[in-house]
């Protein structure tokens, strides 16, 4: 089970990094979203993987670690806010210059 989660995080990270290194704004935003998933799952996993023991107090004997969940919950919502800000910046840049390259024009030859 641990291997599945760890490899999923690894694949999401790799895909996120690869897309974040693309030359246009849209794939970069998608890449950063993938990285957000990876980071959120990573933070969540730091509390350990437990099946069927939600941190809702009842008669149960064990509960999973609630703290990472609380941290990740706000992180998910905040990441929406951050994505929205990045998107509006990207959109503004594209609408203003009709160009959605992330790199400065001078450096473009070297990257293309």
């Amino acid at each position: 089970m641990e291997l599945l989660v760890a490899s999923a995080i690894g694949i999401l990270t790799a895909a996120g990094l690869y897309l974040a290194m693309r030359l246009r704004t849209f794939p970069v935003i998608i890449g950063m979203s993938l990285l957000t998933y990876a980071v959120n799952i990573f933070l969540f996993a730091s509390g350990g993987l437990t099946v069927g023991a939600p941190p809702i107090l009842s008669d149960a004997a064990t509960y999973t670690d609630p703290l990472p969940q609380a941290l990740v919950l706000t992180a998910i919502v905040i990441s929406f806010g951050m994505t929205a800000v990045v998107v509006v910046i990207a959109l503004g840049a594209y609408l203003g210059a009709n160009d959605d390259h992330v790199n400065d024009l001078d450096e473009k030859e070297g990257q293309a």
């Binding site: 291997l3 690894g10 694949i11 999401l12 990270t13 790799a14 990094l17 990573f42 730091s46």
Partner: peptide, 12 residues
């Protein structure tokens, strides 16, 4: 990605 996976696996 490998780094992230290894780190997570170890942590878990």
């Amino acid at each position: 990605g490998l780094g992230a996976a290894a780190l997570t696996y170890h942590l878990l």
